[in-house]
Structures are given as structure tokens and as C-alpha cells.
Nucleic acid binder design. Structure first.
Lengths: 319, 319
DNA sequence: ACTTTTTATGTACACGCGTACATTATGGCA
DNA sequence: TGCCATAATGTACGCGTGTACATAAAAAGT
């Protein structure tokens, strides 16, 4: 029985047929629990998500896309998805998931460079457990990672603004515990450097990727726009751009008119807002899909540790 | 060992301590696979999602919220979340998930009234497997369900429009295979009836809950607005409202000025768009949480089969 | 002190599959 | 026909828990 289903060892076609037919008649389905136990593999791939009850700290768009990508590949490889919400109180015993054999591999979303997280990941690596980070790098540790080229994306966005004659480009970045924040800052600086413009630190603002944090920066930025110190803003994600746009609008400043604006993520909102937001498209679906493939797909596993997928600037109406 | 951890049977405190300490020293962690096998329970609750690769047929907001709600309650009850993407080719053998013991209970999201789905759910019920629908009712079958009061929500939205003096209210509904579409249509009709206005069938349009479908209705609706046949539109979700708003804007018609507009879902977008969209807030998080509680929580299980949660109209700038 | 009840611990087996190994059929070849 | 190699099938055991039952220790009652 086990042999026919798993096609192990030689056997007569006729025997296989007979067994299969008998199984069908009896309505036999293998007990996944027993299989997992006997194989000592759960067949589950864990996806670790930030715990955000009723609060959209991260773009839901972001996670839906990545999850879909992971799900598609996992299904193709015969794995199921086990969703794991990170504990709110900072307990991040990812390794325990492996020690209890709940998962065979895991993908960490929304990883951030803080001590608890670093030690949790180090423990995974030390245990030899297969895992993959998405959209976060730790430069001092070589973890399996799928990232996007946020340096190039930011550089392209800022270069575009400069090409529009906007030479006073402000930058609203996200928190530094995310490597992609640092990447974007570098991209911003590189674009300025290429244009022979010195990067002024007072033009770099920091939010927390939430809409609210963008809105809260409207006051100081509005002042600078009016004073001629800023003629364009590049936001590290769309949500902050939305908040900023709203805050500036309340102060009588319109994007595309009084200032140029570029966001990041190509989220749903960037298309429905008006004027439509220029932004940078990130292949979240593909990133999720690749992360899963790296863990599950034998062919992919030989690839380089850190995959960096290309992004693309999308010009719309705010720039 | 098993007894101390599961606290079964009487035992001396000192013995418990000794065992626990020994376990700690040896770094023992129970093998979840063996536990599941021995208990013949997976400890997983399945969440069935529509398969939407790279296409946002449903609002991602909707699913993120529900998932978070389910996750919170599942964790509280000691269950894990197994994500199951519905097969694209119409194969919906939900019962197999139970027969293989992959899941102990399941929550069906995005269920739709089509034959394959009906038979899949009937099989679940026949097998006595615990499951819960969210946001979809089948009136001829009494399935465990968590729904929202879309009748009341729609009625409130339309009544609001009527109170604004908008007496020619068009309705852009979703596909009829969703019970909440029917609910909203009834709410729309009831509001009109209460105001003594007859419901004209040509004012009822049908989209598919996508932004595109809303946009595609802009042409006929624009004509009627110009002709005075429509002075307000109620859309069955925000996404269609966004599309419609965009389509009408391209035709020179502004919400809040040439026509009033109300959406549904209170999605993120409704707050970032301008003018900000009047809409109906649905407690998605609570719905997910309740659905999980109904399946997992012993106390909740005695509740009525169909829970209907309240919604609330939110007036913003488009009405 | 002895029995009876209660409490605590020891022990063995079942759960349902995968798989290594033993056994038996089959076919090729001299 | 006999012999060996190979293909096919039969068989038994292990995986690591939970748990029913047996046994031993402690407590309570006479």
C-alpha cells in the first residue's frame, strides 16, 4: 500500500492497479498525521508574520502578494503553509518550531534588525534549520535571503525627480532596523551624487512606514516647500506618501503642482489616489515564490544565498 | 513525562519538579508530529482562501483583517493556522483535508454560491466536520456562519443619501453568487421603500467587486448623471467605488459635487482617496476572531449557528 | 496491626505509516 | 532441468507520544 502510493521499489502494473482500486473502493485516504510521523517531516513550511492586530503597520498589499507567491510554490512542491504570527511580547523562538517538527522550513517576513530577532535567526542558522528572509538583509551574517533592489529603485526614483528639474529632493525614509531603509537611503544619496548635488541631512526625514507618520511630517516639509527648500519628496513607501500628501493638501500644497512626489511599492492605493502616485513597483509575488523555491525546490537550492530581484520605477501623475 | 506536561492524573509536586528539571537539562521538547499522531488531532485549523495569483479580486484588506482575527483566536486556543488556497480548476475537496486529518476544523473565506462549492460544503456537513463560513450564507442550508449585517449597512448608506436630498440613488452591486450581494440589494430596496420611492431596476448595476468593473460602469452612469437620472451612487464595495470615481472623473464628474458616492468596507483606500469616501465599516477582524472561536472555543460553541455582526456607516466627503 | 480506600508511579501497547529485510515468484541461460 | 539473478511481494519493526491498566505507596478508617 505504502509502496504503490509512493511508487517505491519495483512492482507489477497489475498489482498496482489492484491496490489502487481496492483503496478507491474502501475510500482509503492516507492519514497525514501518521505519514508525517513516520517520515519525521511535517510537510509544512512556516511563514512568520509580524503580529499586527487591527493595525496596518505594514502594507497588507505587501503581505498578500508575498503570501500568494509562497503559497503557489509551496503547493507545487507538495508543502502546506503554516501561518505563524510573531508574539507581541518579543518572544521569538523560531527554532522551537523546528525542534518540535512543526515545520520543515520557514520564511521570515517583516524581519527587523533588533537583538531578539538577530539571536532568533542565529539560533536557526546554528541549528542548521532551513529558512529564508524576505526583504531584509543582515550584512554581517550570510542568511538565505530574497531581497529587491531597493538601492536601484530609490536611485531611479530620485534620478527621475532630478531629471524633472527638481533639485531639492527630500527623502522620507523608514526605520533603520530594516535593511531596505538603508538601501533606499543609499540609493537616494547615489542619485544625488551622480547629479553632483550634495546630500543635505536636513532633507532626510524618518517615519515608520505608516500613513500617520507621513502625515505627521507634513508640517516641517510644508514649511520647507514654501520656503523653496524642497521641491520634491521621495517617500520610502506609498503609505507614508499618502499620509504626507494628505497633510500637505490640508496645508494647500498639491502634488504635481507645488511639489513632486514619488512613493514606493506600487500598492493598490497608488492607482486609486488622485493624482495617481508615481512609485516603484516591487515584485512581491515573485519574491515570495522564489523564497519558497529556494527552500523547497532542489534545483533552486544551489543558487546564491542572497537573491536581489529588480524593481521598476513607474511614473504617474505626481511627478 | 507525558503526564506532567499534560497535567493528567494525580502526582506529587516534587515528582513534577524533578521531571520538568530533567526535561530542561536534556533540552527536551515534545515532538509535535508524534503528539498529533497519538492524539489523532493535528491541532491545525484550516483557512480556505480563494486562489488569486497576482490578481486582487478580493480586497487584500478584507483577508488580512479576517486572517489576523482568526490567528489571534486560534493562538489563544492553542491551534495553528494552515493556509489553503483553493484550487484554480474548481477542485474543492475540502472534506479530504479532514479525512487525511490535516486539519481539525476549517474556516471558509470567499465562499460563493456555485454548485461545486455547495457540494463541497454539503460533504463537510455530511461528514460532521466542524467548519464555519465567513461573510456568506446559504439560506437553504444551516451552516455555521459568521456574517455581517449587510442589509442594515446598505440600508443605512442609502438612507443617508436620501436624507441628503439625493432621491435618484443608483446601486452598483456585486455578483449574485455572494449572499452579501443579495443582502445589500435588499437593504437598498428597503431604504427606498421606507422613503416611499419605487425601486427602478435600471438603476441597479452589477460589477464583480473589482476596481475595473466599477470603472467600466462609468460610461452608462455618467450619461444618467448628466441626464438627471442619477444623483447618487451606492457601491457594494470600495474598490468598485474607486474605479467608478476614476471613470466618472475622466468624464468630468466629481464626487460630492456632481453626484454623491458611498462605498462599502472602509478599506484603507477609502481614507487616502480624495475626496475621502463615505463607506460602511465591517468588523472583519472580529468576524475572523468569532469564526475561530465558534470552532475552537467550547464556550462559544453553543451559540446560534449564524452570527450577524453589526456594521456602521461612516460619512466622509463624497456624500 | 490490618484492611480499605485513595494517591502516585510503572508498564505496555496502540496509533498508521515507511522501510529494511526476508521470502517467494519470474525469467534468462547453460 | 537446474541454477542464478532479478523482480515482486510478505513481514516485522520503529517512529515518540498518549493512555489504560497494573502495581506500589501513602493515607484513612477499623
Amino acid at each position: 500500500m505504502s509502496r504503490v502510493l509512493n511508487n517505491v521499489g519495483p512492482m507489477k502494473d497489475e498489482t498496482r492497479e489492484r491496490v489502487l482500486q481496492a483503496a478507491a473502493e474502501l475510500g482509503y485516504v492516507p492519514n497525514a498525521l501518521a505519514q508525517q510521523f513516520a517520515r519525521r517531516r511535517s510537510g509544512n513550511i512556516g511563514v512568520i508574520l509580524p503580529f499586527v492586530p487591527k493595525v496596518h503597520l505594514f502594507s497588507t498589499y505587501y503581505f498578500s502578494e508575498i503570501l500568494s507567491g509562497i503559497g503557489e510554490t509551496a503547493k507545487r512542491c507538495g508543502y502546506d503553509l503554516l501561518l505563524i504570527f510573531r508574539e507581541p511580547d518579543g518572544a521569538r523562538d523560531y527554532a522551537k518550531l523546528f525542534r518540535t517538527h512543526k515545520i520543515d522550513a520557514c520564511i521570515v517576513l517583516g524581519s527587523e534588525n533588533v537583538p531578539e530577532e538577530r539571536s532568533a535567526l542565529a539560533e536557526l542558522k546554528a541549528g542548521g534549520y532551513p529558512f529564508c528572509l524576505v526583504n531584509q538583509r543582515y550584512d554581517d551574517e550570510r542568511y538565505e535571503t530574497v531581497d529587491a533592489d531597493h538601492f536601484a529603485g530609490s536611485k531611479a526614483a530620485v534620478r527621475h525627480l532630478l531629471e524633472q528639474g527638481k533639485l531639492r529632493v527630500a527623502f522620507v525614509n523608514g526605520p533603520e532596523q530594516y535593511s531596505n531603509s538603508a538601501d533606499r537611503l543609499e540609493g537616494y544619496r547615489a542619485a544625488l551624487a551622480d547629479a553632483g548635488i550634495s546630500c543635505e541631512e536636513e532633507l532626510v526625514y524618518v517615519g515608520n512606514y505608516s500613513r500617520k507618520s507621513g502625515q505627521e511630517l507634513a508640517e516641517p516639509i510644508a514649511r520647507r516647500i514654501r520656503g523653496g527648500g524642497i521641491d520634491a519628496v521621495f517617500c520610502a513607501n506609498d503609505r507614508m506618501a499618502f499620509g504626507l500628501m494628505q497633510g500637505l493638501r490640508e496645508r494647500g500644497l498639491e502634488p504635481g503642482e507645488h511639489y513632486a512626489l514619488v512613493g514606493y511599492d506600487d500598492s493598490d492605493g497608488s492607482r486609486i489616489i488622485s493624482p495617481r502616485l508615481s512609485t516603484v513597483a516591487v515584485p512581491f509575488y515573485e519574491m515570495g515564490s522564489l523564497a519558497a523555491a529556494k527552500l523547497l525546490d532542489a534545483e533552486q537550492r544551489a543558487q546564491a544565498e542572497i537573491a536581489v530581484l529588480p524593481v521598476s520605477f513607474i511614473r504617474r501623475e505626481t511627478s
